[in-house]
Write a protein that binds this DNA or RNA. Structure first.
Length: 428
DNA sequence: TCTGGGGTCCTAGGACCC
DNA sequence: TCTGGGGTCCTAGGACCC
């Protein structure tokens, strides 16, 4: 660990704090019985594995694997299986991030379970270790921390911390250390290098991150576009992706779900699509944004080779930016009517709103005959009630009452932190 | 029987203009 | 014989991430 002071004088230092097996760890926080036991979390519809505890990983359970394929394995090993509980994970994520914020000047919350931290003022492993301990004490979530000059290198450092360091902390504090690490780091594990690109790299004989870093930049640019070059430069220690502490406005917002049961009738699809459209509108209002496009897409089941496949999508451009539920739902329904075919069975439907701009920048149109002030009032009342009483307590009539197209979630853990009725009772 | 959802960025190609 | 070509805007699709 010596040499950290030398490195501190080099300016930019970034730490990546990444929660270990986040969803599985969340399930454990309120259920100590499953500590040290194999735990997996399933995707929507209880479809595939999206999180695994270390014990589950050791059993050979793979990420993304359909649960039905490994039913026997899960049962034989008494694996604790949970449906996703995003309300719980989202809330624990906020607590983790807020805890980290007490220890650093700048933080970029990168995803539900990761944050980049500014360590430029002082970088060493001890500082990371203190943060790690504090997060565990305050939230019960274990995190690992990787420290380096750039985000891409911090990602590598984090991998190493998770895999090889008992304390879960690792810092690149010399060029020699970086070289030795990259030399044994598989190119496909680099941030930004996915399955397709790593496959092509290997065809050219590039297997390690070090080989990638040392490849001619022009050749990389030609074969792997500007992104490849950016990754390469970050590996050399040049900051291409600075810390972004202001969350940029989303450019698209999408709500979509697969159905528990396939759907044929237009009437059901109308309920689904209005519900998704309403959810997009609510997300827009939460972000204080408006959209200028609304699209609807449908999809048949791509895994069923026996039925006719159909993946239609229809987009409407608006003249006046909106985040009004009623308006967005009515456009979405119009789009649905255009693409619906009665001779298909559908597995999935979704709504995307795009060309998003700040609410405050919206301009009035001469030809707009909607009473927008009144609509704004209605929406804000609905939002307030729903925030207090629970999602969809107030909704549009067209969304339907039954939601029998909704998700299958057979193994949902209680919403310990976000729903009063589910709060953990502690006896003293 | 059962196969996630929500994002971003980049590129190629068409339309259009001069 | 020779059938421009560069810029811009838009969109669809691919690749990636978590």
């Amino acid at each position: 660990m010596g040499g950290s002071n030398f490195y501190n004088s080099q300016g930019n230092m970034i730490a990546l704090a990444d929660c270990n097996n986040f969803y599985a760890s969340c399930e454990r926080v309120f259920n100590p019985k499953i500590k040290n036991k194999p735990v997996v979390v399933l995707s929507n519809n209880d479809g595939c594995i999206i999180a695994r505890s270390n014990e589950a990983k050791k059993l050979g359970i793979k990420m993304g694997e359909p649960a039905f394929k490994i039913k026997n394995l899960l049962e034989k090993n008494n694996v604790n299986v949970y449906s996703t509980n995003f309300a719980l994970y989202g809330d624990l994520s906020k607590r983790v991030m807020n805890t980290i914020k007490t220890e650093v000047n700048q933080i970029e919350v990168y995803s539900i379970d990761e944050a980049f931290l500014d360590f430029s003022d002082f970088a060493d492993e001890e500082r990371a270790f203190l943060i790690k301990k504090k997060v565990y004490k305050w939230t019960g979530i274990p995190v690992s921390v990787g420290i380096a000059k750039t985000k891409t290198l911090a990602k590598v450092a984090n991998h190493i911390a998770k895999k090889y360091k008992k304390e879960g902390v690792f810092m690149f504090d010399s060029e020699d250390l970086i070289r030795r690490a990259l030399n044994v780091f598989p190119v496909e594990d680099l941030w930004g290098i996915g399955r397709k690109i790593s496959k092509r790299l290997k065809q050219f004989g590039i297997y390690t991150a070090l080989q990638f870093r040392e490849t001619d930049e022009k050749w990389i640019k030609r074969n792997f576009s500007i992104n490849g070059v950016k990754i390469q430069r970050e590996l050399k220690g040049e900051v291409i992706y600075p810390l972004e502490t202001l969350r940029p406005r989303k450019k698209n917002i999408c709500t979509s779900r697969s159905f528990g049961k396939e759907v044929k009738e237009l009437s059901k699809l109308r309920e689904v699509v209005s519900s998704h459209a309403n959810s997009c509108a609510t997300k827009l209002r939460d972000e204080k944004s408006c959209c200028l496009t609304i699209s609807v897409f449908l999809s048949t089941n791509p895994f069923n080779s026996k039925v006719k496949q159909y993946y239609p999508c229809r987009l409407f451009n608006l003249d006046v930016p909106t985040n009004d539920s009623i308006e967005i739902v009515s456009y979405a329904l119009k789009a649905l009517e255009r693409i619906y075919r009665s001779d298909c069975t559908y597995k999935k439907a979704g709504v995307i709103v795009g060309r998003i701009i700040p609410e405050s920048h919206t301009q009035l149109s001469l030809f707009d005959n909607l009473d927008r002030d009144k609509r704004r009032e209605i929406n804000s009342i609905v939002d307030t009630i729903n925030r207090k009483m629970g999602k969809d307590k107030v909704k549009l009539a067209v969304q339907g009452k039954t939601r029998d197209w909704k998700l299958r979630q057979e193994r949902l853990s209680p919403c310990y932190t976000t729903r009063f009725a589910d709060m953990l009772q502690v006896r003293v």
